[in-house]
Design a protein around this nucleic acid. Structure first.
Length: 491
RNA sequence: GGCUCGUUGGUCAAGGGGUCAAGACGCCGCCCUCUCACGGCGGAAACACGGGUUCGAUUCCCGUACGAGCUGCCA
């Protein structure tokens, strides 16, 4: 069996859509599972959609996710160039299109936009305003197929703009095989004579894809399910060239909560969106891997290495998957919990500094929140009380389960104030010792003392860490200030 | 409209002629506990519908419904 070669072929048009990311992931996994080669190819044949800086986004995303390519624009593996505009400049696509023209499987077309427009027919109910009503359908009528060789030559010599179209038979049918969806047959009559070479000389995606995949010896073509219906055209192209078709792996769509194709509107449709929302790359990759595939042993938290080992494209699901941000949040939380202290500290630091300007022990704060957040953006609201004591309601001191009351709380704080004033060692252990001996002495429940103290120093119903941790981080001066303030409020 | 694909709890998702139809997220409850988390235990919750085939269909076949994708000189 020959070496497995897969390629990820994004267009540099902006952020990396999670659908594309999953495609890249699966391509990577398929190659790596077999010890094959993973290639990055840039499909920039649409000059109008090209976005400045998009190429950088692609490189950054690949690196950030760990999907490292073996060949690409920056890593020549002998099949370059890996950028389609560069390949176009070398005349590769036109050369192959001409081969097809010679064989009669493609032809020059000089039809104007106006003529094409006149071909459009409207189907359905014109009175229906919504989009499910009138639909414009166009099927090219092969008008230019019937131009004589001389007419074509004359038009070309005259410099008339032209495209090259695929010549699809009007009869018969075309069948291809997909690993996931099985055998699919389409009547040729349904297939349009798609454009291979555009009037600006660039190839269309469809054509460039077939040519490059063949030239780069791609063995497995992995792509979104939205290409399923155009695949028969590819098959005809391969057939016309006499090339062997790759293995097709069409992936189920990733949708939003409304079961529609995930779009920018959702707010979390791209890898970069997710990073901005405080997700970590490992979690994103892991989650996305599970959209359409599951491990045989049912495990869900899987590293890239484990994915490589376990991934089998034969187990990919057919049905579309909803992108569930809630589950991603959970998984992200799992990754944060697993993370080494130092790594998490470095990730969290910028978020901590965003809310805390005081000179506090950021490391201890980071340690406190590590098990309590799902995304890095959760940090802010968890720790804001360190910076500034919120203006809280004294009813917070009344807690049924803790058996605390306003009076009781006041008493506890009044008792404890001089003790804390006298205390110099504000380590957690020291504070704990002081509090526990007070509790013992008074013969009350832990909560009856700890709840008021924690409330006094935090001003919040819930906090990461308890009274000891918070006081210790806050330090003597600030802790005392907050306790005195509490006494004032309660008196 | 036409073509193509899909349909197991709210979501992801195993299973694939005979199962009490896994597991995960979320939700609810309990335990742990100075709060919140973490962790532990438990619970509610699904085979779209109608016909076949069969001793027996969630599983196979055909329809229907619903959903989605495509129908660009976009990819």
């Amino acid at each position: 069996m020959s070496e497995v070669r897969t390629r990820f072929a994004p267009s540099p048009t902006g952020r990396m859509h999670v659908g594309n990311l999953r495609t890249a992931l699966y391509e990577y996994l398929i190659a790596k599972h077999e010890g094959g080669t993973f290639i990055l190819r840039i499909e920039d044949t649409d000059q109008e959609r090209f976005v400045e800086g998009a190429l950088d986004i692609i490189y950054r995303t690949m690196e950030g996710t760990g999907l490292i390519h073996d060949e690409g624009p920056d890593k020549d593996g002998g099949y370059g160039p890996y950028v389609q505009s560069e390949r176009q400049a070398k005349g590769i696509y036109l050369e192959y299109a001409k081969k097809l023209v010679e064989k009669g499987d493609a032809y020059y077309c000089f039809c104007t936009k106006e003529r094409l427009e006149s071909l459009k027919t409207t189907v359905g109910n014109m009175n229906v305003e919504e989009d499910d009503g009138a639909k414009v359908i166009t099927k090219y009528d092969k008008h230019c197929l019937h131009l004589s060789k001389e007419e074509v030559e004359a038009n070309l010599a005259a410099g008339l703009p032209y495209v090259i179209r695929q010549n699809i038979p009007t009869e018969g049918s075309t069948t291809f095989h997909d690993v996931i969806y099985g055998e699919i047959t389409v009547e040729n009559e349904e297939l349009d004579d798609m454009i291979l070479i555009k009037s600006d000389g660039y190839p269309t995606y469809n054509f460039a894809n077939v040519v490059d995949d063949h030239l780069m010896k791609i063995t497995h073509v992995v792509r979104g399910n939205e290409y399923l219906s155009s695949t028969p055209k590819y098959t005809r192209l391969y057939e016309a060239f006499g090339w062997e078709e790759p293995v097709y792996v069409h992936l189920p769509l990733i949708t939003n909560e409304e079961h529609k194709k995930l779009s920018k509107r959702s707010g979390h449709s791209s890898f970069e969106d997710l990073l901005e929302q405080g997700f970590v790359p490992e979690a994103i990759v892991n989650y996305v891997a599970l959209l359409g595939w599951s491990a045989p042993d049912n495990r869900e938290i899987l590293s890239l290495e484990e994915l490589i080992q376990l991934f089998d494209y034969n187990n990919i699901n057919k049905s579309p998957a909803v992108f569930d941000i809630v589950k991603l949040r959970w998984m992200n939380g799992e990754y944060i919990k697993m993370m080494e202290e130092e790594k998490f500290y470095n990730l969290a630091l910028p978020y901590i500094k965003e809310v805390i300007s005081k000179d506090l022990d950021y490391r201890r704060i980071a340690a406190l929140i590590k098990t309590r957040i799902e995304t890095l953006l959760d940090i802010k609201e968890k720790i804001d009380f360190f910076e500034e004591l919120p203006d809280y309601d004294i009813q917070m001191y009344v807690h049924k389960k803790m058996k605390t009351s306003l009076e009781g709380s006041l008493e506890v704080l009044k008792d404890l104030l001089p003790v804390f004033e006298a205390l110099d060692d504000y380590s957690e252990e020291s504070i704990e010792k002081v509090l526990m001996s007070y509790i013992q002495e008074k013969g009350i429940k832990n909560g009856q003392a700890l709840w008021p103290v924690r409330t006094a120093v935090s001003g919040k119903q819930s906090t990461p860490g308890g009274a000891y941790e918070i006081m210790s981080i806050l330090g003597k001066e600030e802790s005392l200030r907050r306790i005195r303030l509490a006494i004032e409020k309660l008196s």
